[in-house]
Structures are given as C-alpha cells and as structure tokens.
Design a protein around this nucleic acid. Structure first.
Lengths: 192, 192
DNA sequence: CCAGATGCTGAACGAGTGTTTAACCGAGGT
DNA sequence: ACCTCGGTTAAACACTCGTTCAGCATCTGG
C-alpha cells in the first residue's frame, strides 16, 4: 500500500476535493478520479483499498487543516468578528458536502461526527479565552458556546442557501450580524 | 400518462418519501421504488417520464403540505414558540434530504430554491402579523425576518447534527431558546 | 548482479443504473 | 361482438460502477 506522502496519493486527494466542490460528492468515483489524474483506475484502489477509504482520507486531511485554522484565525483582535468570518467562510462548502455524503455512508458519518465534535469544542475553548482576554462582555444569558452554535448555524445555512441560488432575507440577517459586531467590538479593524 | 390521483401514482410518491427518509435519496431509483410497490420498473416511468420527474413530483407535493402547515401552526397563541416548534420539527429532515439532492440535480435545485423562497416569505408574513396581534415587542434591531432566519438556521442545523449523531452543546443552545421564549411569551401554554 | 519491494497497468467479473419498445390484459362504451 | 384505452408487463439496450487479479516496469539495498 502506497506511502503516506506519495506524490500520486496527494494528487488523488486533491482531485477528490476538487470534484466534491465542483460537482458534488457523487462525481467522485474510482474511475472518474483516475481519469482526472491520468492514471489507471486500479491505482486508486492501490492507494485506498476501497472508495470509502478514499473519502475517509480526504475527510481526515481536511479536518486537520480546519482544526488548525480555528486557533490561527481566532487569535487576532476582534474574536467575534473572526468567528463570523470563520463561520461564513466559503471553504466550509466542502464540509457541507461531506455532511451530505455522511447521510448514506455510515463509515463517513462516525468520522465526521467525531470531527465536528472536536471542531466545536476547539472553537468554544478559543472563543472563551479570547473573549476574556479582550474584555468583551456578552449580554445576559448568551454564553460563548451558545453564541458559537448560533453563529455557526447561521453561517452554514446562508452558505447552503446561497449555493442553491436562494438569498431571501439574507441581507437583513447579515446586517443584523454586522450591527451586533459593531456594538460589541466596534468598527472592523480591517476597514480603512 | 397516468391520472393525477391514481392510487398507484400516490403509492409511488409515498414510497419515494419513505425511502428518502429512511435510506437517503440515493436509495430512490426506478427499480427500487418499483420493487417496494410490487410493480414492474417500467410502470414507474409510465407515471413519471423520468426519475427527475418522480423527484420533482415528490418535492412539489411535500412543498404544498409544508406551505399550508405554516399558516396553520403559526396561527395559535405564542407565535414565537410555534415558530420554534416549526423550525425544529423532525418533519424537516425530508427537506434537508431534498437539499442534498439538489446539489447534483439541477432540475431539482431550481424548484427547491423557489419553494424555499415562498416558504420563507410565508413565514415572515405570518410571523409579522401574529406578533402585532399578540402585542409582542422584539428587542431593538431584531426584526421578525431576522429572528425567523436565525430560528430556522438553528433548528435545521441542530436537526442535521442530530441525524449524524452529534449533539455537542445542543442543550445549551436549546436552553437559550427556551429562555428567550419565556422572556417574550411567558411559560409554554401547553405545560400543565 | 540479483532479489525484492514499490508503483502501476489491462482486462475482466458481477452487479447496478435509467430508459425504450412492443405487447398483453381487462373494462367500458358503442 | 368489436374496439379502444388506461394500466401494466417482460425484455432488451447501452451504459456506469466498485472491486479483483495476474503481471509488467522500475528502482534499491545487499
């Protein structure tokens, strides 16, 4: 079985990601990935014994990157603002695609649930710490964890609706978030 | 082409819905649906010229039911509480499955986007009206539309995470909602 | 220089898919 | 009695799919 860092192996993972993004997970198959890599179909199964293994490897790689990103992004000033950019970042589209995949591939479901769990707890920890450090006071009854779940949910849904071409009432929702951010952290520091 | 209300036709639609719920949209196929209905595969294509047509018919039927449900449910007392039950109702799992389907069936995508649009506007209208009628005052900057989008988003995400076996921080989020409801509408009227 | 591991291929198997076509069955109306 | 017509069928077409297996290169270490 191929080495962890084989050039071909990484190429196959890249193609898998790209296909999922551009055409949905259903476009990913042994033959299709092989064709895009200009390689024989059997080679894909040489690196990943089954198609599930390919998906799992792609998920794990992505999950690690995302987890690292949380601490890096949330570390700047204005953690609330950073949380919002993190939650509404288009890069999460891939996670959404994995979520859809998980609906009918139980091997994926378990792994994705575990990742989502770690991801959320990492965010809670980082956000709680940063809020204390920057001295931001949340309104009564709104804990960092709740704010996080709400923000993640809103960001994800807006993205999902966007990709299917629906934007009804999105501006109002985004304006509300902007307003909230301004109230608790002042104007965006990256505005000129 | 079969009559709109043929017994067989409705049976096929029922089976399609059930399969989507229990095994995901990928389980729906001409042959599979036929087998469950104890009928020849070609008959499915007799009623729905293509598989896309079957999905579309199922979507349309469901969409109409949901749309009717909005007014019916939101019409009681405590519209905010009703909005929350509507948003976190497990019946929405099917819509989520349709959303996943829409990711790689463009014929579905357009129809679903249109439905989601109508659905949201119907909710905004009903909620706005009911809030005025019951005299509930929302906090500053929180319009009915924004509250609606937030509630829908949270409900959907909690459901999606639930079905994949992840519940991290859900209790806190739900408790927050309960708290909010109690503050603006008092205790649940259906509690003994 | 040879053995053996590593990377890679072509061909096949078995099963699944959506869709089309021609034909059959059983009632209802004329 | 005939004929039409909606509902229904079996069979075939033309794919695509995941997976397996035997074997061919190429490179490396002893």
């Amino acid at each position: 079985m191929g080495a962890e860092n084989s050039k071909t192996r990484l190429l196959l993972l890249d193609i898998t990601e790209r296909l999922m993004l551009e055409e949905g997970y259903a476009a990913v198959g042994v033959r299709r990935v092989a064709r895009e890599a200009e390689v024989a179909p059997a080679l894909v199964l040489y690196y990943f014994r089954t198609l599930d293994d390919l998906f799992l490897a792609a998920l794990r790689r992505r999950a690690d990157q995302e987890l690292a990103r949380v601490d890096r992004v949330l570390d700047g000033p204005q953690p609330l603002r950073m949380l919002w950019t993190l939650s509404s970042h288009p890069g999460n589209t891939l996670t959404t695609e994995f979520a859809a995949l998980a609906n009918h591939r139980k091997a994926i479901r378990a792994e994705l649930a575990a990742h989502a769990d770690r991801y959320r707890e990492a965010q809670v920890a980082a956000l709680t710490r940063r809020l204390a450090e920057t001295g931001v006071e949340l309104p009564d009854g709104l804990s960092p964890a709740v704010l996080l779940v709400l923000t993640n949910a809103l960001g994800r849904i807006l993205m999902m609706e966007n990709t299917m071409g629906m934007t009804t009432r999105h501006e109002e929702a985004v304006a509300f978030v902007e307003d909230f951010l301004k109230r608790y952290e002042g104007a965006s520091a990256s505005d000129a």
